[in-house]
Each structure stands twice: as structure tokens, then as C-alpha cells.
């Protein structure tokens, strides 16, 4: 296939043409240096997509096996029934040994294949240590230009939530009854408190009640210990019991998501901007390390610079490109 014009493609992405969305996602996954400019161009063209500003980017994270994919499936179906369109990015780990991956989330999702308003893409982490997939940040932006709600499913508890904060408006932590680790993490302040907590597999009311109570306790302890109160102090994270297999609790979850989205209305732009800054700097420091950051003036200076440039219309990727060029030039000048 000949490379197509990013401007045209962007138009097609915005009208949620599946083939165009898929091509755009292929492009943002492309790691060849010669493709970076086209990726940046595409994202720039999608930046002001009408869908993007009004949309909702929802992160679902939590330990493997708690039912995130199953939940994504029922959540997406219910959101579709309410007339909104949904794009899903499901991130799975790549094998360290072979570089390959088994992308299994799709197997747990059942959708009507002829539904034009629903799109699911699996992404391998492709060697990002503990982090979101290389392309996930861009992929979310592509889908956000095409669909009303974007759901990002990531595995693991730990590093990846910190990453998911960069891309999601609402971070939802999914756990299952009896999952002690997560409670410990929360209590010990190892984990930032998410915006919404879901106790899935609440098939039995009794178990569910107990699990919700445990979680509430853990949150209180975490607050008392002064754990980072998530993103903002005015939001009390709701705890919702769901059964993805029975389909219970899904309406409550959607309501909570909607409430959080409304809550964010005033601060959303700033929150997304903060995420972009962190993403741009992350990309840069992954590429050039401590030395790169200090050569260009240190973290604080770079952050301020990033905020300025992003305000001026730069995208995180193009910014990162430019910083890289500057760094390499500086290197060339130093003897």
C-alpha cells in the first residue's frame, strides 16, 4: 500500500472509518525514525478533532485475571446502547525473550462485528519496562478523534497506573474480592488512589459487600497515612461492585464515569495538558536518559518549556523530536 496523505487520513479517522482508524494506528505503532514525522503530522491533524475535546478517556487497570477485558466488553456494549461510540485499546505484555506477544484480551470480548461505532485494538507493550505500550499514548489520541469514549485496558498494578494517568481522564482500578495485594498497596501508599474503584466478580452479594467494605477501610487508612489523594482533593473515589459475567453494576459504573467526567469539566484541559507534558518528557528521557534531561536544563526547565510549546500548538511527539534534535546538536558542539 502506498503511504497515504495524513491530512486525508485524519479526516477519515474523524469520521470513524474503520479502515482509516486502523491505518492510523498502524502508523503510530511504526517505530522507524523515518515515520516519526508522519506520526507527528497525523496527531497534529487530529489534535482538534471535534470528538476529542468532548470525549472521555477511561483507563481500566488492575491485576491480571480480575476481569478487565470482560468488563470492558460489557461496559462498551452498555455505552453503545446509550448511543455513544467506543474505541478500546487493550495492552498486553510482550515476551522479553522473543519480543512477541499473545494478545488475548479480544478473546474475552464479544461484539457485533458489523457495529461501526465500536473499535478494539490490542497493543503489545513491546519492551517498555512496566509501562504503557510505546504506541498507546498516540493510539488513544487516534481513537479519541474517532469515538466518544476511549477505554484503555492495561495489566498490572504498579508502574502502569502511573503511566495510565498520563493518558486517561478517569483512572479506574479493577480488583476482585479477596485481592489482598491491592489493599496493601493502597494502605502503604505505594499506589496512587484511582478516580474510581471497581470490585469485579461480585457475583455473590455477600462477598461483594465484604470486599467493598475492605476496600473502604483500606482507603481510609491510606488517606490517614497521607497517601497521595489521586488527582484532586474534591473528588471522593466511588467504590462500585460489578459482575462482568452477570452484567450487574454496569449502569452504576457508567454513571460514576459520567459523574467523574462532569466533575473534570473545568480542569480537563489542564489535566490532559499535564499528561501530555509528562508523556513528552518521558519519551525524551527514555531516549536520552538523565544526560539528555540535564543537558537541556533539567526537569523543571524542560517542563516549563513543554507547557509553553504545547500551548503553542506543538504535539508531544513533535516536541520530543525537536528536543532530541536540540540535544544532538548540543552534543555536537561540546568537544
Amino acid at each position: 500500500m502506498p503511504p497515504s496523505d495524513p491530512g486525508d487520513d485524519a479526516q477519515h479517522v474523524m469520521s470513524a472509518d474503520k479502515a482509516a482508524v486502523s491505518r492510523a494506528l498502524n502508523l503510530v505503532e511504526d517505530r522507524r525514525p523515518e515515520s516519526h514525522a508522519r506520526v507527528a503530522e497525523l496527531l497534529a491533524a487530529l489534535k482538534d478533532a471535534p470528538k476529542a475535546a468532548g470525549g472521555h478517556r477511561v483507563g481500566l487497570t488492575g491485576p491480571p485475571g480480575v476481569g478487565k477485558s470482560t468488563l470492558t466488553s460489557v461496559l462498551a456494549r452498555s455505552v453503545r446502547q446509550r448511543g455513544r461510540t467506543v474505541g478500546v485499546v487493550a495492552v498486553d505484555p510482550s515476551s522479553i525473550r522473543s519480543g512477541g506477544s499473545l494478545l488475548g484480551d479480544r478473546a474475552r470480548m464479544s461484539f457485533d462485528p458489523s457495529d461501526a461505532g465500536l473499535f478494539v485494538r490490542s497493543l503489545p507493550t513491546a519492551g517498555e519496562v512496566g509501562g504503557l505500550a510505546y504506541a498507546a499514548n498516540s493510539a488513544v489520541r487516534v481513537l479519541a478523534a474517532a469515538y466518544d469514549m476511549v477505554v484503555i485496558e492495561t495489566t498490572g498494578v504498579g508502574q502502569s497506573e502511573i503511566d495510565i494517568v498520563h493518558v486517561a481522564d478517569t483512572v479506574t482500578l479493577v480488583i476482585q474480592p479477596g485481592s489482598g495485594d491491592v489493599l496493601q498497596f493502597l494502605k502503604a501508599g505505594i499506589m496512587e488512589i484511582p478516580d474510581i474503584l471497581v470490585v469485579n466478580k461480585a457475583d455473590h452479594e455477600e462477598l461483594a459487600r465484604r470486599a467493598v467494605a475492605d476496600l473502604r477501610g483500606a482507603l481510609r487508612t491510606a488517606h490517614a497515612a497521607g497517601a497521595s489523594g489521586g488527582q484532586d482533593a474534591d473528588w471522593e473515589p466511588p467504590i462500585i461492585a460489578t459482575s462482568a459475567t452477570k452484567g450487574t453494576g454496569i449502569d452504576e459504573l457508567i454513571d460514576a464515569l459520567d459523574r467523574h467526567r462532569r466533575h473534570l469539566e473545568a480542569t480537563l484541559a489542564a489535566r490532559r495538558r499535564q499528561g501530555e507534558v509528562r508523556w513528552a518528557l518521558d519519551l525524551f528521557s527514555r531516549k536520552h536518559g538523565e544526560h539528555g534531561v540535564s543537558t537541556l536544563g533539567g526537569v523543571a526547565a524542560l517542563k516549563a518549556r513543554a507547557e509553553r510549546d504545547l500551548d503553542a500548538g506543538e504535539t508531544p511527539l513533535s516536541l520530543c523530536e525537536r528536543l532530541s534534535r536540540e540535544y544532538v546538536e548540543t552534543l555536537g558542539k561540546t568537544p
Binding site: 474503520k18 479502515a19 482508524v21 486502523s22 491505518r23 494506528l25 498502524n26 505503532e29 499473545l102 494478545l103 488475548g104 479480544r106 478473546a107 461484539f111 462485528p113 458489523s114 473499535f119 478494539v120 485494538r121 490490542s122
Partner: peptide, 20 residues
């Protein structure tokens, strides 16, 4: 990408398209 057994031709094609 492996979705398990009993997937319709429509679903397979939708997956191929969306997954690139």
C-alpha cells in the same frame, strides 16, 4: 491475536481490520 474457538467469519474479518 487469538480469540478462541467458534468465531464467525464476520468477526474474524472485523478483528483483522481493527487489529491491523
Amino acid at each position: 491475536v487469538y480469540e478462541g474457538i467458534r468465531v464467525s467469519p464476520e468477526q474474524i474479518v472485523a478483528s483483522a481490520l481493527e487489529e491491523g
